[in-house]
Structures are given as C-alpha cells and as structure tokens.
Amino acid sequence: MDRRAFLATLLVSTAITALPAFAAPVVTYEVTPELIAAAKAEGTVVFYSSLDVAVAEKLAAAFEQKYPGIKTKVERAGSERVFQRVGQEYGSNIHNVDVAETSDAVHFVVFKRNGWLAQLQPAEVAKLWPETARDPDGYYAAFRAHLSVIGYNTKQVKAEDAPKSFADLLLPKWKGRMVKAHPGYSGTIMTATHALSQTLGWPYFEKLGQQRVMQVQSSTEPPKKLAQGERSVEADGNEYNIFMLKESGVPVEVVYATEGTPITIGNGAIFKDAPHPNAAKLFYAFMFSKDAQQLTSDVGGLRSFHPGVVEKPDRTPLSKIKLLYSDPQKLDKEIEAIKKKYEEYFGT
C-alpha cells in the first residue's frame, strides 16, 4: 500500500483522500426468517461500543436471548478509542468490526467519508426515526442520544445550595470540589465543549480552569466520582450514568442548567466489510427495535428516538429541557483548536 495513504487511513487524519460518494438510494431491510437463519449460521457478531460497559453487556445479553446461537462480542472503550481502533484496523485491512456505535457524531461523518460503512437501514428506522436523527443517505442512524449535565452529590450538597447554571460553577465555594471529563478522550464532552464554547464563550472555560477541577477522562466517570463522594459537583458528565446510580439508591442528582444542556447524538452503523454481514444486519436492526430501545432507556437511562419508548416517570422528558446542539460538520474542523484551548486552561 502507498505509505502516505496507509498513514492517513491509519491515523484517520483529516487529510484522508475521500472515496467518491455514490449517491445510491437508501437500502432498507426487514428482519426476515432468512436473515435470522443466515445470521445464526455465522454465529457471532462483533460490536464496538462506547456505551457504559454494563449497558452494552445487557444489550448483548438481550440480543443473545432473543436470537440464541449468536454470540455477541462487545468491545467497549471510550468513543475516541473506538474511533482510533477502527481507524487502525481499517488502515491495515483488518476487518474485525461488524457494528459500531460511538457518542461522537463526527466519527460517522469521517467513517462515511472514508467509504467504510454499509448503506443499510433497518425498516424501523426508515419508518419511525425523525429525519434529523438519521443519515439522509442511510449509512448511519442515531441509536441513542444523551445529555451532558451538571450534577451533585445530595449528601454533600443541599438542593437549594446546588448550582443552577454554568455561571454558578464559577462561584468560589466550588473551588476544589468539582470533577469533569476530558474532550480529548470523550466524544460527549467534545460535543458539549463545542456547544458551550458557542453559547457561553471561552472565558467561561478559562474561569472554570481556575477552579482546581479534578480532571477525569470518560464522560461516564464524573457521576461515579460523585457517587464515591470524591467530589461534590460535576461540571459535565453523562446524564444516563446519574440516572442509573440514582435509581440504584446512590445520592446523586441532575441539574439542567438555565443556559441550556448540551445534547450528544450517538450514531450506529454497519461496516461495509463486516466479517459477519448477516449477524451484523440482525444485530443492527435489533439495536433500533422497540425492545432494545426500551431496554437502553430503562437500564441505561439513554434517550431514544423510537416514538414507542416510554421513559420512567421521574425523568424529565427531553421536550421540557432547553437543549444545546453542536453541528458535527463544523465541529470536525474545530477539534484541534478546542483541544489546544482546553489544555491551555486545564493543564491537560
């Protein structure tokens, strides 16, 4: 292979020479008995995911229960690690992955541009998903959405003292008492940082950087640091992890900031060179089925685009939350600048 092309694909740099995108019509498919039989013959499906590891394993177990005889291999890592791994593997022609999902929408823009995705869409997605939550060419679709929220430990902070807004986080009383995740590692936080830098501006982050914030990597981690009692307030982190902890009796609570709450769309897709193409199709369709979507909502606290999913009553519905969006096409070009500024303010 040409060395330059090899490196480019290896590192999934922006310099990738994109394969020409053919404007082929969207291919939708149903789960048929033939598909199930073919998937069972393959026997395995490999799922790269950035879901919380417990949720990912539960999703896999539900799939195995519904379609016995198909083993699900879950490769769980942070979004950026999943992205890096797929890039490394496809760069050296290793086709391990059947289905992948990450919480960084930029990844699927890049995957699609590289021509690595299969143009397949489950019928359920075509029928039920809003147009904004699926790729117009049918290469990927929003498997989930989740929010990056402020949160606090209710044993350490009374509800009336808790921060109500991002501006509150800059109060001296929170100095040394906050935890937050890293945009270089977490797709959720990169998306949130992009959205917040547009809404609040960089001076907000500059001031937050002077609050001696404990810096963790994955956006699943700040809620766990709250649960552990290591810090009282999280400046960002997954809403769904707080739901999961709270519902198991841990004293943590979500805050929807008055300025708005950043939302992250987590896409999923089938890879073109999937080693188990039929099992991949079956698993991918299952991911968007009402059962799976209800499951990830119930045990995972994730937000679903499936209209049939019923959320637990004590969760605030998305319609009542002021949401802040980030455009993946724009974000793709700004990642470098965001990381540089972030390191300047936070040290890493």
Binding site: V53, R76, G78, V216, Q217, S218, T220, E221, K224, Q228
Partner: peptide, 11 residues
C-alpha cells in the same frame, strides 16, 4: 485500563 477510564472500580 478500559474499565478505569469509565470509573468501574469494583470490576
């Protein structure tokens, strides 16, 4: 290491 990045200290 993967588990640490997501804070699963028990596992």
């Amino acid at each position: 290491y993967d588990l640490n990045e997501s804070g699963d200290l028990g596992a």
